[in-house]
Design a protein around this nucleic acid. Structure first.
Lengths: 345, 345
DNA sequence: TTGTAGGCGTTATCAT
DNA sequence: ATGATAACGCCTACAA
């Protein structure tokens, strides 16, 4: 219970606290024998320095913090693993901080900066519609990773940004389906009020249809109910089942704005006794591993997750260590042709 | 840059620091007008209390910490979401702490206890083969969640444990396959030196074979190379492909010790031109959502993840708030019959 | 090479 | 209801 502190260690060793401090922090100017003796006592008594006290005193921390909003995103675990690896490679320590659903990520960051004094921050996920003045409070370099570009994220030279162009990639997929001869493409979109990637992907779809001379049919735009997690297999299944039951509209292709939704839709179609791609073509978005392992393999837009994660850290370190300028980096995603779509011309 | 502290706020407000402290901490004995005035200044100057200083001074924290080892586990995001919800419901705050691959989770916990003084800890994942004396250093109640029971985790009354019985459930699945008439069941196991759930599931398989009068064929036990993440679709695919190419042994069923591995195996079998379950039955373990959405639906052991997560928090709070005794809670998993297995009698 | 003392920003105790 | 002040545990000048 009563846990030991640096003073106790000093007393036990018969030295001053600064000597103990030097020992545990690998300072050069200390007698090796003294150090060994101290470390011995430290081990024996299980002395563990109090990080709060350390953080309070320090100005420097040699740490990168990653703030995660919405842990359910299937990309994140892969990205976090890369963050961890890359950050360690640079001999920095890695602070992973969770941001609750209702919480403001910038407020959390502000708190964290005071508390742990990280040298850089990665914001992962979330919507990020913050005012410029709020963002400017962040006195630590940061990069927005895998966050949909919204209008409020105009060219600001004081932070970095790594993502794909959701609009353009969604356009690419829709255009691909059009070129396959599909004229009636159902889209399984996010919630109607979505302001982030959900909206961007929907708009890419709209634009592609238009450019292909296909008139937008609102009946083919399916939205998730508000307040529900809409990038799920469950949503895809439910929505698709309902549509098939209703038989209100016909279509030859389904474009789901995420692979999870697409897989849910596939299930609904199969259960309904229809075949993919013979009866319906199905396309997704994200390029999850499962898209490749699914049966049939799913046509999707593969985001280069690993590269994006690596770039995130690289850019951050460039800014942190080399005082490089902030970058806005847009990665090109790849359209993966799977067995789930077919030519209907 | 120069960030404001409680003294500055006090000076600006023309009051003492303790009054400011009372205001920001919702202490009762403060004049509402004074408080309003202070809070006004706090907002205007974006004052944010320094948590390190707070933690240093406080003895109490009203927080539960969750330590996560191996973020790639597909269960975790679901569990973490429930942890977050349940912890918030109790008006506690939620500290999520990542444990690096090489790090010792107990050491991390020890550090965290000093730093943040949580009232309880959840260990999620990892192997947890710690000596009793090491565990006893933890002065804070903790529960091991979804951690394979190993021999070193004997009946210890000073911590809780929530999991499924990997041995028994694996036995159940293997027995099920035997009862379907399969006599040659290939198992896609973990690494050979696995000491945790990988070993437990393998032993369940062995025992079930024995009880069904089937002699163990070592050629049917496939292990992952050491050092690789073996609960992946990639491993399942690679291993299964190799086996099919080699044609060294024959079998009628494949039992993968995780759903991810099973899906990888399914892909390999399908690509090889074989049909599931006509040519090979395939079974998994875990009960991921995808098992239900996969085509064919996967026969698997569904772990009651949500209930386990809820129980984890419930037990922890019982110990923390009500001084209840620690519990070892074994959840029963459910064998989900999918389309991937068939009767061969 | 080592020890002493002050201060990091808070909260808590004690006066007032 | 409010203010001064002593910790909390550590690091780091500065002194020895």
């Amino acid at each position: 219970m009563e846990s030991i502190n640096i003073k106790d260690v000093a007393r036990i060793c018969g030295v001053g606290v600064s000597t103990v401090s030097r020992a545990i922090n690998n300072h050069p100017d200390i007698n090796p024998e003294t150090k060994d003796m101290i470390m011995q006592v430290v081990k024996e008594h299980n002395y563990i320095p109090n990080n709060s006290a350390r953080n309070l005193k320090r100005t420097d921390s040699k740490a990168i913090a990653v703030l995660i909003k919405g842990i359910s995103n299937p990309f994140f675990s892969k990205m976090i693993r890369i963050f961890e690896k890359e950050i360690h490679k640079k001999k920095y320590s890695f602070i992973m901080q969770h941001v609750d659903a209702g919480e403001d990520e910038v407020d959390v960051a502000l708190e964290l900066i005071k508390e742990k004094k990280p040298r850089g921050i990665v914001f992962l996920g979330g919507f990020f519609s913050h005012s410029k003045e709020k963002l400017e409070q962040l006195a630590v370099p940061f990069v927005l990773s895998t966050i949909g570009m919204t209008d409020s994220l105009e060219e600001s030279p004081f932070y970095s940004w790594v993502s794909v162009d959701d609009f353009a990639e969604s356009y690419k997929m829709t255009d691909y389906l059009c070129k396959l001869g599909h004229k009636r493409i159902l889209i399984l979109a996010a919630t109607k009020d979505d302001e982030s990637i959900g909206r961007l992907r929907l708009e890419g779809y709209r634009k592609a249809l238009k450019d292909n001379g296909i008139e937008l049919d609102e009946d083919l735009c399916v939205f998730s109910g508000v307040g529900r997690d809409c990038y799920t297999m469950d949503y895809g299944f439910m929505a698709m089942s309902r549509i098939l039951e209703e038989k209100k509209t016909d279509f030859t292709a389904v474009y789901a704005i995420s692979d999870s939704i697409a897989i849910g839709a596939c299930k609904a179609i199969t259960e309904y006794g229809m075949k993919i791609p013979e009866d319906y073509s199905v396309a997704g978005f994200d390029g999850l591993d499962i898209a490749h392992y699914y049966n049939p393999t799913l046509t999707t837009i593969r985001q280069p997750v690993e590269e994006m994660a690596e770039a995130t850290i690289k850019i951050l370190f460039d800014v942190v260590s080399n005082h490089a300028d902030h970058q806005k980096r847009v990665f090109k995603a790849e359209l993966m042709e799977g067995e789930s779509t077919r030519n209907v011309k």
